[in-house]
Write a protein that binds this DNA or RNA. Sequence first.
DNA 1: GACTCCGATCTTTTT
DNA 2: GATCGGAGTC
Length: 750
Amino acid sequence: MEYIDSLNEPQKDGVVNTEGPIMVIAGAGSGKTRVLTYRIAYLIHRGAVDPFNILALTFTNKAAKEMRNRIESVVGTDARNLWMGTFHSIFARILRSEAHHIGFPSNFTIYDTDDSKSLIRSIVKEQNLDDKVYKANVVLNRISGAKNRMVSYEEYNSNPIYKADDETFGKPETGKLYQLYVERCRRASAMDFDDLLFNTNVLFKDHPAVLNKYQHRFNYVLVDEFQDTNLAQYLITRKLSAVHQNICVVGDDAQSIYAFRGADIQNILNFERDYPDLKVIKLEQNYRSTKNIVNAANSVIAKNRVQLRKDIWTTNEEGELINLIKAFSDHEEGRLVALSIFKEKMQKRLSNSDFAILYRTNSQSRAMEEALRRVNIKYKIVGGLSFYQRREIKDLIAYLRLTINHNDEESFKRIVNLPKRGIGPGTINKILVGAEDHGISLWKVLENITQFVHGKVAVTLQNFVTMIKRFELEVNRKDAFEAATIIAKESGILKELYNDKTIEGLNRYENVQELLNAVKEFVDNPENETTGLSEFLQEVALLTGVDQDNDEDRDKVTLMTIHMAKGLEFKHVYIVGLEEDLFPSQMMLASRADLEEERRLFYVAITRAKKKLSMSYALTRYRFGRLKNCEPSRFIEEVDPKYIQVDKKFSISNPILPGRNSFVSNLMKKANSQNLKKGKTISNYSPQSDFIPSDTSKLNVGMKVEHPKFGFGSVVAMDEYGAGRKAKVNFNNFGEKTLLLSFAKLKIHE
DNA sequence: GACTCCGATCTTTTT
DNA sequence: GATCGGAGTC
């Protein structure tokens, strides 16, 4: 166990104190993950604990996977049997086997946020409420907040405080909606993300025997990123460790950035109260960053009032000063950052993967992407819209979901008329109302469809039901990959996409194939104990943007939100868009506590950097499709100025680029400029995805195209920025048209 | 019921 | 700039 010797004293304390409650307050870059992994390794080696009896909870699948690998490298394949994963995935797994106790079938569906919102929209509509007042997002947040605090709808509706609260906001029916939402989820045998935690608590509360079983299974409980747990999560861990009291939580109050999701720093204080003989360890030595970065970060976080006292220090080199870049527009900001990366890369012989660009909101990635592509620097976007959020992927997944759980209403609504079968909103409504009125499930209605709808539509629906039943047989008979392939084919999804010969259609077809490949991989992966379709769906439902990385992504600059960056580190970090109203976010400026969370977010961003940090802001920025003037963020001033240098070399005066609104008038200008001569190729880049353009998706200026309405024409100019979205085309009979549509609708004649 | 066009809305962050 | 839902037309 010589690995222990490589640790400093407090780290060692965190590893060897295996019995009893322990809390490790770990400053940024202080080797928190090392403590956790070595602690688990130590338990297995020294304590001879069966990995099966250890539960380790993380916040992302990626963190879990990484930790598992690191433990495996120390203790070998024994680590396979560890219970390690996100709160959501671990308790989804437990709920599957115990669901019958709380009146759910084990094949329950996990609703994603889109499903939840769509369900709320339909409930609001059914209740004849104003959807402007009861916005799906707002209602869902309210429900989610209640669930995170373990407030059931019964409690919600009987507590006058909530009622009064809702009334002051002009939304007195929220409690009713909460109840209807829960009932509808139950009817559809579905749980949303919050339910996975809420229902686990219910399960443990109402079924002591079940709780007892898991209490005795998990002799040791470890929680990573403890500062981000909400009450529902906290209660679960407390219940599970109540017998053995061997609970270890690791976190940093200064990096708590998920209050909007119900995370509560108060949990750290509760923890001390709930476990009187708690051992507290502080890790204060930073191994990650230079002195300048550590000190700058300290100078920022010192402004926060709510925090545990910590003194983060490092013996690392002094390092370079923080580079402050000022730009006139968001486009220029992108250009300056791209140039800076290019220069640093050359001078210091670094690779793309040493760089990360961090921003407050996903929409900021656009300007950065454009700039990076122009100087030919490869990049990847982590998070944002992922593969699994694409329409065609969600369509096929809806088929799979409905096959597994026939009562999944959201999936049903999505695919009952896909491909088109002549089932419109009217019929769908009749079915749902039928279920409501008779108090029966969706599938019961479908099985007796002739009692609810008549004529041709009824026959179509009967065929639909027969098809889903056939799919179910296939799932039971064959492995997940074969079954999914059959479903993709026989549902007509593949066929429809195959017949769509447009570029977009081709891409979609390939994406569906890609999903089938993913199923295949899942089936073939020896690490998966169970490889049924249902398990695959569960994994997909709980997947996040960060979790999808492949080998092709290796040498690329990373672009992501600061939230996504927690737990990661890079040699060079660029924090972009440091402007008032953007970062700190406008919505956060209302209350002081929230501003503190924004400041913690800034702190997280700074402390991601190992060698060098750059910060940038723009004086004008497109937001909402309009050009807005911006002011530098107050956070810039909060960094002690002695750690900052203003980048003069890059502050070149540059005219503000024309607005996207003036796109049309500028197209011809562009076409005439040397940049867009005939034959110049611009890849068809889909701006809302990280999809990499393939050769088939290229369109040339001067190319002959065919449009369904205007007939034949030739491309005169194209939008250089939103490439692939807009083109100016000269049509034979209709003259020049600016096509505000995807190129996908154009057929290309080479 | 299918299709097209138009306007409202959105941008905080994620499991 | 992009999505979604509603209104209107076939």
